[in-house]
Design a protein around this nucleic acid. Structure first.
Lengths: 215, 215, 215, 215
DNA sequence: CAATAATCGAGACGGTACGTCACGTCTTCTT
DNA sequence: AAGAAGACGTGACGTACCGTCTCGATTATTG
């Protein structure tokens, strides 16, 4: 459930299931707005995206947009998370190496697809708008990181990884290079990069466990 | 030498030292513009930065800005690189671990300083402006990466690192997590992160040399 | 009714009294703009008049001006005609000579007043903008000329003037010298000029009726 | 000799025929500027005419224009009078009627030609620039009016016109309607208008001599 | 079934910044 | 010293969106 659509729904809940009086919010408009937002975001960057254009594209009054989303950032964050919910689940193959590299390959595939433009817009816009980057963290990064913790834990339980490792360091080492290549575009970001990265980092984790545990 | 100031200077060179006719460009204005750009960039983000405000702050006509920089991006890129030239050199302590972690600590220090806002603006803005991100690569990333290659090579020569490693993979593994934490801000980015990262990755490199050489 | 305000009103009429959708035009702004236009026109000439200044003086967004008037000329024409409607009616004294010279005196009085600056601006600007001069003709010249025709006709009916005279020639002979002195300022334009002119021309008309009817 | 080009020539005269030191003024540039001014004035109106464009068209530095003409008005006035010197002389046929109507026909012909655009620009621009209208009076109107006085005087001497007439009233009555039709364009301005006008006004003068002499 | 209430679309509003153009002045080298 | 070249600070241009507002119309709940 998107963050900024709560006003009247909250009232509804408080009133014990009763609807607020007046014309109810148009679900049709809401979806058209989110759809147009994603569409235009893929065509232009975040700064070029205008609420004027979104409203026009969605055949909706400008005020309807402003009624439900306080800023362009909130709208984009909503649109993004509405479209990001179902993807990028972690597999469970019985091997940490395999689980991680498979998921990382998925991520790279997403980054290279049309959807990547939206992520780039979010991360780019987020550099000047804390709300945007927070939305990315909370709706995209954290849910996946929770799953990643479990995946790593399974590896520890199976003895593939030493106990006591710094999971955040490990995961940032695995994903950081992907994000870096995605955002800076200084080198190719293809799926085999996931394998090489996975090999390098997970072997490093195994070896330097003593250092980690000493921290 | 900044990119967008070449027009008339090039002519000068071609003409064998002769100056172009007409009033020469005001070096004073040029520097005032770059100074104001950096100053305002630190106060607001890249999208909020307006050429109008830069010109006003620099006591300069708007047209003078547009005469020399085609876009806000080009201006910011110039301002950034004019201020980034001298820093972040690599040390040479006789140990790869030490050399790298020292430099990475410097980078983190920069990212956490006022200058970090400019980098974030550049990378953020760059997500919707290829010119900006290219400027970052060419004027910031590449020069340092050249030095990093040499640092790694010294490690190989000294036997600290195996020969035949994938330097780009290694360096992205070292720096990627820093950039990720800097841009996504999902976890603390302090200088000790550099040491942990360095330990993890360089040990990983040593162990997985066979994998790398097999590629 | 001013020319450039018709768009939405016309729709209203076509729709049988129904209003166009959307926020209706602000009558307050419209009048403030016209008022400021006249005010500034009296202070400076037509070329010096800037839409920027009008908008500022009227406490109005620049876009509001451009929304309703395509050019500065159209705006000035509207402002002029909004202020010119009620004046300079022709008297009916029972004597052509008296009627004409009284009205011509009024005209000279207007030309010598503050309002004269606006007329001069209109006629001056009109030399490079057909729209402006057309506005002057249609909203100022023609309405008065209609009345002048009737005044002359009354003179003919009463036998003061010969039938079959060229009314346009007559009226241009009466008013042309006034306009000429007003615009070229080569000689004094005072009210007694009206009497002298009237005497000369109307006597001329009486005498040269034969020439006119022979045309 | 144009008004604003006097600075150095005056010095020359004071110095007793000696030339000022330094590079002499380029006659070529001066003429190119005047030529381009007229050319562009015929293409666009006075307000649209830009010194920038004149300098470019004349292949001349902008400063050269500003060095010799203080304002656009002065330049246009100069250009106009440089081109108006030789025309519109009064004939001497032995008949006032004929002399006047021939000259008025000439004037109408000029007004309808390309040169008319320049006159319109001058009179139009002059409504907001006293310098311009003064230039028109002094370099165009007065010289011709002097000749017109003589023409009328010849008529009086020959007994065609009564003595003691108001020459300025007479001439304004003859020319005012032409200027009015030229500037307001409310009715056709063809050469036969000169004859009708001449007939009407000169007959009027003959009849109302008593009124005039009574003034 | 009316009254009330909040939504919807449309689009005008006062603003801010855009990128361009011409202004009149200046600084340089060349003639 | 005047020439051309052309950069300079200035300020208006007309445009695009901003976020807010005022309309009539629509769609629900409440009395």
């Amino acid at each position: 459930m998107a963050q900024s659509e709560q006003r009247r729904n909250l009232e509804r809940n408080r009133n014990g299931g009763k609807r607020a009086p007046g014309r109810p919010r148009s679900e049709e408009s809401r979806q058209a707005i989110l759809r147009s937002t994603l569409k235009l975001l893929k065509e232009t960057g975040f700064p070029q995206l205008s609420i004027e254009a979104i409203a026009a594209d969605a055949d909706v009054g400008k005020a309807t947009v402003y009624r439900w989303w306080p800023t362009k950032a909130a709208l984009v964050a909503d649109a993004f998370s509405a479209s990001a919910d179902q993807e990028l689940r972690f597999p469970n193959t019985g091997s940490v190496h395999k689980d991680m590299s498979l998921q990382m390959r998925q991520l790279i595939r997403v980054f290279r697809s049309q959807r990547g433009k939206v992520v780039a817009a979010l991360l780019g816009g987020g550099q000047s708008d804390p709300e945007l980057i927070a939305a990315f963290r909370e709706r995209f990064l954290w849910p996946r990181r929770q799953q990643a913790y479990h995946t790593l834990q399974r590896g520890i339980d199976r003895g593939e990884l030493p106990a006591g490792i710094d999971m955040d360091l490990t995961l940032d080492s695995l994903y950081g290079p992907i994000y870096m290549r995605f955002l800076i575009r200084h080198d190719e970001l293809n799926e085999s990069f996931a394998d090489a990265l996975c090999g390098l980092v997970l072997h490093g984790v195994e070896v330097s466990r003593s250092l980690q545990s000493a921290r």
